[in-house]
Write a protein that binds this DNA or RNA. Structure first.
Length: 945
RNA sequence: GGGCGCUUAGCUCAGUUGGUAGAGCAUCGCCCUUACAAGGCGAGGGUCACUGGUUCGAGUCCAGUAGCGCCCACCA
């Protein structure tokens, strides 16, 4: 074995072996255990969030596979409607083409080509991470099985009246020319103005204070062209007399009513609100109550139409309603129109005032364009009947959120859930299975033929399929059962619904989690998963969101393979939306990374993710941690090297020789069991941070730092018998082999590599560690007296090391040790374990001194009542030793004060549990005794000086 | 406006029925001792954001304050 662990040498090799072995597929035996991957965008690439969540999922999957469960990690990718279409349109734009140039069919063909070409990127990257998902079942949300499920669900929901079509206001994205759902709108606070305009009262009416106009305030002056009412609060005394009267809407010369509606806030603005039902969600509701017509003034680009259209609230066109667009406005972009409106009002003397105002601006989450409420025909899911069972599933505990608190977020949304707009005016996605006749009547069926027979349509009725596609999340919502073959009654459906746990981020609880619960409940009667483990979101080390524009993105593959600084800078500064940031990002990147990023390997990265997976909602990714865990991998590697060097070509008892176990052997076995107990518990609680910590501490602090050192005197010492040597060799290989199995789910590669070499020495045969059984906790293997005895040895060794360290005694120099004032138990421990003490503390001799024996001047350490004495005989600096002891005295005095204060408090002695009080008394006694001993030592040193 | 979360060592974070504060990285000192310098040994470093309450005892429970952050929501 090489002296340093080199992950690049082994990772790819093992992954290929595993994948071709077929072990990623369910074994068909044992309890079902299933995780559904949140399908990443098929044309995307792996980011830190994926890598994190996939690590968690793979750890669970490997763990359960080794526990003997029938384990399925259902993998696949999402067609990601808007995102993917955007990418391909951008590529076309580079050739000065639009999708319209190609036409629908050719464009969709192009997207499929792009999918074929780039669709493998993320799945290849997942392989680099070691993900053991069942690739043979890899699904895609646009493949035949999924499409079939989508169609089936749509038709069934339509037939039940849960899916309906309606003309309503939707969130319209004027850049992509499509409707989007409420969830895809991000409200951002932006600075704007509140314009105050005068609306002249019609027919000679006047306000209470004699004015012939009222003032309305608006943040969107361009919508004035669509105003069909002005609203005031019914109890607003300023305007009460005007209710029922009219104003003459400037520019359009349309007479519109003043209505009373308690939606209006008297305190805000002027207390008069212009009502534009076709371009504002609130105004729609107000307008509906007062039957104010809907006047649509915008085109799909959010420019002013040539001619406005008026509708009533049933979607019927109001041909007679006069809503002509004033001259000079047609075709203007909404912002240009806004400026013109303001200018025209000013010219007319109707601009009252302009005030600064911050407002919530709705923007599309993909396009970042300002979203317009827009009157269109769309398909909706009436979610109420679906939401109820979905809420109950969580309330009853059938589905459990981890951490539990996220259920509150879930409820909050579910209790207020709105109908879901599912149609999108895109080309890439599931085409809506609806056909229209010439009159616009819609027929929903699985195919045109079925539509004809289902609705008894004559053969000569011309039918045209709906042009729209479904929201991507519609097909994602079916993921838990569509991927398993629904609506066919497959064995997989039977076995793996509900799945065991969903691992995902809180950012898609509404988009995805809630909708999966609704749809899966509806169509299978089961919940989609029993637990939902919500992970934190990965941020950079200062808590900033990783983003291209901030230039702080880390690519998980770069952490695995390493990257030089020039490539990293190039990656971070290429293709920027704001090229002027490149300089700054380059500078910061160079400062932060110097030469670049080292290669840490997959296992180190995976272990880091596990170690960072605490319950917090944001996870700051600290590169220092990866480095630390890379070192951990190296530690494991070298421990294995040591074990193999001392066991290969030796009898390790694997074929039956007699074994005698040392105290150290019993101890490490016991500590391993305790580690197992912790690990199992923490994994059950999804505390990967604590599980990984238990693993780390056992391997580094116990197995390496103590046990391997304790094995040295046994293996090399002449005083040890063959049986004892064999016992220790057996323990070395057996523990290492078990530890590799324990660590495998988190660190699959290094554990496989080492296991392959060590397993035969432990008498175990198998093709791969990934199908070996996972070690289970066995209380019978815990030997508490061995643990106690070894703790004593550790304390003695630490005491001597402290003296050595502080007194600057060379680690190469052997020293004699005297033990004084020890108990009989300690004497026995010494007799049995002298070799361990001598070896670990580098002692030339150990002498047991009785009470009253003469003692030389020494450096001293205390282990409870036992005094450890290293005779000073010319090798120790008296002043330094005195200073060291005084520091100790100071520390003990503080303890003593605290103990005294507590015990002097009668309330403490009376009310605290007896055990606590006794413990405090015992502490005090020990501290006092220690202090007494130290003061004797100090006096002795002073007498020398 | 409603809901949620965070504040512990220089940095990134643990702290599980309340019982004398922990890790990694960073810092300081000594060591290339044949598993490992990506290492070993030793050391230093914290009024647990603030205020009050409950309690014999609070990082931990309760109330409030400040700062930071997230989500939802129709104030023109």
């Amino acid at each position: 074995m090489d002296k340093a662990y080199s992950p690049a040498d082994i990772e790819q090799k093992w992954y290929q072996t595993w994948e071709s072995s077929g072990h990623f597929a369910p074994s068909g035996e044992g309890n079902p255990y299933c995780i559904l991957i949140p399908p990443p965008n098929v044309t995307g690439s792996l980011h830190m969030g994926h890598a994190f969540q996939h690590t968690i999922m793979d750890t669970l999957i490997r763990y359960h596979r080794m526990l003997g469960d029938n384990t399925l990690w259902q993998t696949g990718t999402d067609h990601a409607g808007i995102a993917t279409q955007m990418v391909v349109e951008r590529m076309l734009a580079a050739e000065n083409k639009t999708r319209q140039d190609l036409g629908r069919e050719a464009f969709v063909e192009k997207v499929w080509e792009w999918k074929e070409q780039s669709g493998g990127t993320i799945t290849q990257q997942m392989r680099r991470l070691g993900n053991s998902c069942d690739w043979s079942r890899e699904a895609f949300t646009m493949d035949d099985t999924c499409s079939n499920a989508v169609q089936e669900v749509f038709v069934q929901l339509f037939d039940e009246g849960i899916i309906y079509r309606g003309k309503r206001l939707v969130n319209w994205d004027p850049k992509f020319h499509t409707a989007i759902s409420d969830l895809e709108v991000e409200n951002k606070e932006e600075k704007g103005s509140l314009w105050h305009f005068k609306y002249p009262l019609a027919n000679g009416a006047t306000t209470a204070d004699g004015k012939d106009y009222i003032v309305v305030a608006t943040t969107r002056p361009e919508t004035i062209l669509g105003d069909t009412a002005v609203a005031v609060h019914p109890e607003d005394e300023r305007y009460q007399s005007l209710v029922g009267k009219t104003v003459m809407l400037p520019l359009t010369n349309r007479e519109i009513p003043i209505v009373a509606d308690d939606y209006v806030d008297k305190e805000f603005g002027t207390g008069c609100v212009k009502i534009t039902p076709a371009h504002d969600f609130n105004d729609y509701e107000v307008g509906k109550r007062h039957n104010a017509p809907l006047v649509n003034i915008l085109t799909i680009d959010a420019s002013i139409r040539d001619a406005a259209e008026a509708f009533d609230y049933k979607g019927q066109s109001l041909c007679d309603f006069d809503c002509s667009i004033p001259a000079g406005y047609a075709g203007l972009d909404r912002l240009t129109a806004r400026a013109k409106i303001i200018a025209d009002f000013e010219t007319l003397g109707l601009l009252d005032s302009i005030k600064d105002h911050t407002l919530q601006v709705p923007r599309g989450d993909r396009s970042n364009a300002v979203i317009e409420p827009f009157l269109t025909d769309q398909w909706y899911v009436a979610v109420e009947s679906l939401a109820k069972p979905a809420i109950e599933a969580v309330e009853s505990g059938e589905i459990k959120f981890v951490p539990e608190n996220w259920s509150k977020t879930y409820y909050q949304w579910m209790y207020n859930i709105q109908d879901w707009c599912i149609s999108r005016q895109l080309w890439w996605g599931h085409r809506i299975p609806a056909w229209y006749d010439q009159h616009g009547n819609a027929y929903v069926a699985r195919s045109e033929d079925e539509a004809r027979s289902k609705y008894k349509l004559d053969a000569n009725v011309e039918l045209r399929q709906d042009e729209d596609v479904l929201d991507t999340w519609f097909s994602s919502a079916l993921w838990p059962f569509a991927t398993l073959g629904w609506p066919e009654k497959t064995k997989e459906l039977e076995t793996f619904v509900p799945s065991s746990v969903l691992v995902t981020g809180f950012d898609i609880i509404f988009f995805w989690v809630a909708r999966m619960i609704m749809m899966t409940k509806k169509f299978t009667g089961e919940v989609p998963f029993k637990e939902i483990y919500i992970t934190g979101l990965i941020r950079d080390e200062h808590g900033q969101k990783m983003s291209k524009s901030k230039g702080n993105v880390l690519d998980p593959i770069d952490l695995i393979d390493g990257i030089d600084i020039e490539s990293l800078v190039a990656k971070r500064t290429s293709g920027m939306m704001q090229p002027q940031m490149a300089e700054k990002i380059s500078k910061r990147t160079r400062k932060e990374f110097g030469e670049g990023i080292e290669s840490f390997g997959t296992d180190a990265l995976r272990f880091t993710f596990c170690a960072l997976a605490s319950t917090s909602r944001d996870i700051n990714f600290d590169l220092g941690r990866v480095e630390g865990y890379r070192n951990f991998c190296n530690k494991i590697w070298n421990a294995a090297r040591y074990v193999l060097m001392n066991t290969e070509e030796h009898d390790c008892g694997q074929s039956g020789g007699e074994l005698t176990f040392s105290l150290a052997d019993h101890w490490i076995q016991s500590r391993f069991q305790q580690t197992l107990q912790t690990y199992h518990k923490q994994i059950k609680d999804y505390r990967f941070d604590l599980a990984s910590k238990a693993l780390y501490e056992f391997i580094w602090d116990e197995y390496c730092s103590w046990y391997l050192e304790l094995s040295k005197p046994v293996l090399t010492g002449e005083a040890f018998s063959d049986n004892e040597k064999r016992g220790t060799r057996y323990t070395l290989v057996s523990l290492l082999e078990q530890v590799m199995r324990l660590a495998h789910p988190m660190m699959p590669f290094i554990t496989e590599e080492i296991w392959q070499r060590v397993a035969p020495l432990a008498g175990i045969n198998g093709d791969t560690i990934m199908t070996q059984s996972f070690p289970l906790f066995d209380t019978n293997k815990v030997n508490q007296s061995a643990v106690d005895d070894l703790e004593w040895i550790k304390e003695v060794v630490l005491g001597v090391r402290n003296i050595r360290g502080e007194m600057n005694i060379s680690p190469a120099k052997s020293v004699p040790l005297l033990m004084h004032n020890g108990s009989e138990i300690e004497h026995q421990r010494l007799i049995k374990n002298e070799a361990f003490l001598k070896s670990l503390a580098k002692l030339e001799s150990i002498e047991w001194k009785q009470q009253g024996d003469e003692l030389p001047v020494s450096a001293t350490a205390l282990v409870n009542q036992l005094e450890l004495l290293i005779p000073m005989a010319g090798l120790i600096d008296v002043a330094a030793e005195k200073a060291r002891l005084e520091k100790e005295v100071e520390r003990l005095n503080k303890d003593k004060e605290r103990c005294n204060a507590k015990l002097a408090n009668p309330a403490f002695v009376d009310k605290a549990p007896e055990a606590v009080v006794n413990k405090e008394r015992q502490n005090l006694a020990e501290v006092e005794s220690s202090l007494a001993k130290l003061s004797v030592q100090i006096e002795q040193l002073e007498s020398l000086a």
